[in-house]
Write a protein that binds this DNA or RNA. Sequence first.
DNA 1: TGAATTTTTGCAACCGATTGCAAAATTTTG
DNA 2: CAAAATTTTGCAATCGGTTGCAAAAATTCA
Lengths: 333, 333
Amino acid sequence: MVTLKEVAARAGVSRSAVSRTFTEGASVSDKTRRKVELAADELGYQPSLIARSLATNRTKLIGLVANNFRNPVFLEVFDLFTQGLQKRGFRPLLVNLSTETDPEKSLHMLRQYRVDGIIIATSTLPPTFPDAFRKAGVPVIHAFGKIDASSGVHVVGIDNRKCGEMAAQTLVDRGYKKIALLGGPQSATSTQDRLAGFLSQLGKLGVEPADVRFARDYSYSAGREAMTELLAEMEVEALFCGDDLICMGAMDAARGKGLKIPEDIGFLGFNDMNMAGWSAYDLTTIHQPIRDIILSSVELVVAMVGEPDRSNETRLFSCSIVERSTLRPLPAS
Amino acid sequence: MVTLKEVAARAGVSRSAVSRTFTEGASVSDKTRRKVELAADELGYQPSLIARSLATNRTKLIGLVANNFRNPVFLEVFDLFTQGLQKRGFRPLLVNLSTETDPEKSLHMLRQYRVDGIIIATSTLPPTFPDAFRKAGVPVIHAFGKIDASSGVHVVGIDNRKCGEMAAQTLVDRGYKKIALLGGPQSATSTQDRLAGFLSQLGKLGVEPADVRFARDYSYSAGREAMTELLAEMEVEALFCGDDLICMGAMDAARGKGLKIPEDIGFLGFNDMNMAGWSAYDLTTIHQPIRDIILSSVELVVAMVGEPDRSNETRLFSCSIVERSTLRPLPAS
DNA sequence: TGAATTTTTGCAACCGATTGCAAAATTTTG
DNA sequence: CAAAATTTTGCAATCGGTTGCAAAAATTCA
């Protein structure tokens, strides 16, 4: 690898001069800059970001911690995340929490690489993370996180409680009586909040939920299994699912029993993933503004790097119903 | 951040001693090791991988270059890739080629971070990559690449030509006569190779292809549009699609025209993505062993880091038909 | 026990950049 | 044109580790 020194020698200038031509906003005359650039080109010089990081104490690396590598909505997350960072001159260091035996381990690893910031894209946040990084002065953004000022991290996401309420209202408005909820994994705070909002609104409207249960994970098969069990036990008129993928599994389970959608049973999904628009499902669902959440997270983490002791922020985006064909229409009123 | 020096001071040993307790296979007595570990714990010391990288000229960073952040099969790629690297003590640096104005730019960036190796997961390889990295002595693995010994990079993938032949044989065996191909983007070498194999085998079997066309990209909507156009122009009995996603779009287009699958028209997909097994599609498809390809790529790239001038290798895995319900059964013979 | 051998330790140079400071060069001003 | 003000430049210390080498310590052997 060609180094600074060699370029300096070739250009007949000092090492500082070379360094300065490659650092934003440093003072070099046009003449030396040209000399240096010429020499650098001839030698194929590329400044070492490793060495620079050591000297500046900035790596331009942002950690992305995720634990859901099976749900297609995460593709969009990865796409927007990498794009957003690239555009700002930062780089993503990906951490797959799903299998790492120990979240502690990835934590260490991120600290060892001296990442400038971290975005956690999981509804559940490993509890030791916030402290560990705050102590080290590394900004942490919890995307899709729970609204909770006390946690000490920045949160960018949605108001899950409100979404639950919206779902309940939507189903009741359409005249459904026997309404069930099929949530994501029960341990996820997003599930709990959605459930709370759902039940509360149902209560306000004087409707008793017919059933509440939870899928094992955010997958088609988990949705399908849970729905199969549900159908074996009872009849319901409409179902609010914690995730589109779960919902599609549930729909296929219902169809498998010969039920027609939306005549015999209605479905309301969550996320509005790409596939929700496919005509085999054409799912009515609650749109989660993933794009806004990720772009905002990226923007925030980059801002934090420049201005480390900014006070905590919570950014919430609103969700909206996307009408397709898995719920019966609103009665003419 | 706590540094080596502080730990050394506290433990009452030299900096080398501390360094050695944290490097694999270095010689330290148990006594000093314990002293050092104690001091390190008390201070919360984490060795800086940045500094280490500078000194050792090894970053333990592997670049993953991808350009398809919309196709769910890539989730599996990301999952296996990150897992595989993590298990071996390496870290993924993700590059999203889809939007980076200039592939050259990402190339520079990867070199600036001094990645130890690169896996390119695209069917089309930016032509300047191999040379640039070979010159720098960085191993490059082209996953899903074209068999082509001359390119100077390692290739791990499948024999696309053979897959095309397999597809043709499968369709003819089932008695289809009017057979069409709906490929992925025409510029992809994988598409070209599959097409070549397909046509060649069809020729051998004395069947004239009814139509050959290409989807704009690897997406549901592209498949749907291409199929809509095709149906407006002609009738076909069976279709070989270059990707499951494209195939699902095509199926929905056909169903939209009132066609029954597989009675009126048969579909053969490619990849065997998760969704192919969903009952709304239940797609008969050619399984691409993505897991094998990625695991093998990771293993290979890590091996290359330890042994830089290993000769070029091509690793090919075989594909197989997964029978579901979108093709009519083999005639009893 | 003492010499021979092996293991552990510390010194100091090095990896490839950045940056504060003062000197040198250039530009502005009167 | 000289003095003052400004810009550019190079020196040398620094970032946080690693590692070859020789000295010191511990172990083995006769």
